[in-house]
Amino acid sequence: MENDQIDKIIEKHQSDASSLIQILLEIQRENRWLPKDAIERVGERLEVPLSRIQHIVTFYKAFNLLPKGRHEIHICTGTACHVRGAPRLLDSVQDLTGIKPGETDMDMKFSLETVGCVGCCALGPVMVIDGKYHGKMGPSKSEDVLKNYE
């Protein structure tokens, strides 16, 4: 992410250190994750020590400090999805993408995460890709779905 893009976000918040979390979230919204350079830039501009920012970005799970792929796969492992076969779904998605939860593949195509309940248990097992819900997923169905993403 370019510095002037970051600066624009910072200026939108009047370079106010109390908007730190908001600024970081906005950078992440544009960039999908928070690169170290961006964190350093924010620290410099807001005059907030790096150790403080580090504490905040590691404290809140909303921040990604590792690169994220173009598409984010979330597999529900909540109780209902679990009994409906989420473990098998997760296994097959891991095989298809070659990554484990928390990881991103080399081509930056997919990032995989597991989540608790996503609130539509009747559709379980559920896989959410970029916010789109795919219900009643089984190993072969998930393969068809993943094929549609570039």
Partner: peptide, 15 residues
């Protein structure tokens, strides 16, 4: 480090 030295070289991480 933060209060006396004001260097902020060491901090907490995660929770």
């Amino acid at each position: 480090c933060a209060e006396i030295k004001q260097k902020y070289a060491v901090g907490f991480s995660d929770r």
